[in-house]
Write a protein that binds this DNA or RNA. Structure first.
Lengths: 328, 328
DNA sequence: ATGAAAGCGCTAACAC
DNA sequence: GTGTTAGCGCTTTCAT
């Protein structure tokens, strides 16, 4: 690999001049600029980013922490973040945390040693006082972490209410809820939205709420238990699509027809919901947009550290598919 | 961030000595070692990886090129590669290429400027003579690229034969094939396996082969067309699971019962195949192992550049689920 | 066993 | 306009 010295020598100028044309920085005569560019071309010179990073203290890298990229909610998010960071010349680092605080801290350290410019985080476990330690810009995604940390989320509670209302509108009389893990803030929000709609009805029972841990198999088990214990249930608001598909499968295994006997609505709007028969009605998050916005906010903050981004809340929207249907 | 100088000063030694204890390199007196470690502790010192990289010319980073992480085959692969690279202290960079040669080249350049230590590539487009340009270790995955490039793949042709034989064994008399895009080497291999089994039968027609481009929607369309044109088809060997699920959905939309009237077998063994009803019988690749092996091979080659890894071919295995069933 | 110093490749004062 | 040089933080000869 040719270095800036080689270019300087070939063009008969100093390295400073080469650096100037490289960065379009300061004055440089047109003719010498041409000469330098020719030399760059001839040597197929590419500046060494590591040397640049060392000098600048910044690396042009952005990292994304997700619990597990194998969870189908995250690839689209990752894709969005990668696209946007790329567009701004950043390299994209992906970190699977398994929701483990140890892994998160290990990653944080490693990335700081590499002068990573910023981090986007889907996490439930990072503590507030640890974050104060760090001066690397961070944006929280999908789950709120702390008030001090800028975040991009959706209106979970409102969306949940809308989901339950949709079930009511299609004629459901007994509506259950399959929720996520306690530790995650959006679990609480979505459950609140559900309760907003049902807690004052005469039929509501606390045993209509079951946890599926945002997990396909767990959701199947929970749904089976739920429908067995409460055959009267004719609608389920499921807190994410992965579990929604699990619920679908459980109902079919029990011989309960969806949507004729049971309506199911999910949350997230991932592609998976479209692959089943019946396809899954859902409250769709603008996943790609969430990732895009988070990346934009982060990049803005990187370029202007004084700029403290606000929390942003995007809206979910109902996508009606085959798992819910108006009944008489 | 404390630097090595700060540590040296506090411990009353030179930076060289600190470096020695840092890297367990060369002789250093036990007592001074202790003193240095205390200083490191006290200052919460972490070595600057960028400076290290600049000196060494290596960055402790490994990149993975995939066409699109939103394609459900790739998250598991990415996860495997990340786990293994992490275990060896590497940082994991993910690049979505969209199968575009321009994007691939842009990434290659960017990564080389960052002194990336090695790259794992799922690609159909990188040219042989470009690869010769590069001295960064590279491993090809899933698709063979060139004989000169070490690769990890599966026995696609044999697996395809096995898939078709499974359909025959369950009683299928007219077996069609839904294939992937021409440009991908495993499309050809899987089709060959199919042809091995059917081309000499009296019933085989070349119009029994349709392309679904490894795409869910395209596969639905192709399947609909296929089954409409050839109602006699009672088995389909589908070249990947994403298309398999599409075929399933198309059949159901046509009112054709799977597996009673039509058997469908996919390829890949991704989790998606388990979420449908009926669940999808498939030839499962050891996806995680493929990623793991590729990462291991790459790391070995990084540590010993003279070591030229061999091509490795892993085996697929049949997973019987509900979309195929013995018929009388 | 330890220190001094050169150098990895680049950028940004500071001279001229 | 252009060159000289110090320095980003680290590792590694080469002395001692």
């Amino acid at each position: 690999m040719a270095t800036i010295k080689d270019v300087a020598k070939l063009a008969n100028v100093s390295t400073a001049t080469v650096s100037r044309v490289l960065n379009s920085n300061g004055y440089v005569n047109h003719s010498t600029k041409v000469r330098v560019n020719e030399s760059i071309e001839k040597l197929n010179y590419r500046p060494n980013d590591v040397a640049r990073s060392l000098f600048k203290g910044r690396s042009k890298m952005i990292a994304l922490f997700v619990p597990d990229i194998m969870n189908p909610f995250f690839p689209e998010l990752a894709r969005a973040v990668e696209d946007m960071t790329n567009r701004h010349g950043y390299t994209f680092v992906l970190c699977n945390t398994d929701d483990s605080i140890e892994k998160e801290l290990t990653y944080f350290n490693a990335l700081q040693q590499k002068s990573v410019d910023g981090i986007i985080v889907v996490s439930s476990s990072i503590t507030n006082n640890y974050l104060d330690t760090i001066d690397t810009p961070i944006i929280a995604l999908d789950r709120k972490l702390s008030s001090s940390l800028p975040s991009v989320t959706v209106n979970n509670r409102v969306g949940a209410r809308e989901a339950v209302r949709h079930l009511k509108a299609t004629g459901c009389k007994r509506i259950a809820h399959l929720c996520g893990p306690d530790s995650v803030s959006n679990t609480t929000q979505r459950m609140r939205g559900y309760l907003d709609e049902v807690k004052d009805t005469e039929w509501f029972l606390s045993s209509y709420i079951a946890s599926g841990e945002y997990n396909f198999e767990k959701a199947m088990e929970a749904t089976t238990a739920l429908l067995t214990a409460h055959p009267e249930i004719d609608g389920i608001f499921v807190a994410n699509d992965v579990m929604g598909v699990g619920a679908l499968k459980a109902a079919e295994a029990l011989g309960i027809h969806v949507p004729n006997e049971l309506s199911i609505i999910g949350y997230d709007g991932i592609a998976l919901g479209n692959t089943t028969t019946p396809s899954l009605t859902t409250m769709a998050q603008p996943i790609y947009e969430i990732g895009t916005r988070a990346a934009e906010m982060l990049i803005k903050q990187i370029n202007d550290p004084s700029h403290r981004p606000k929390n942003e809340e995007l809206s979910v929207r109902l996508i009606e598919r085959q798992s819910t249907k108006a009944r008489r």
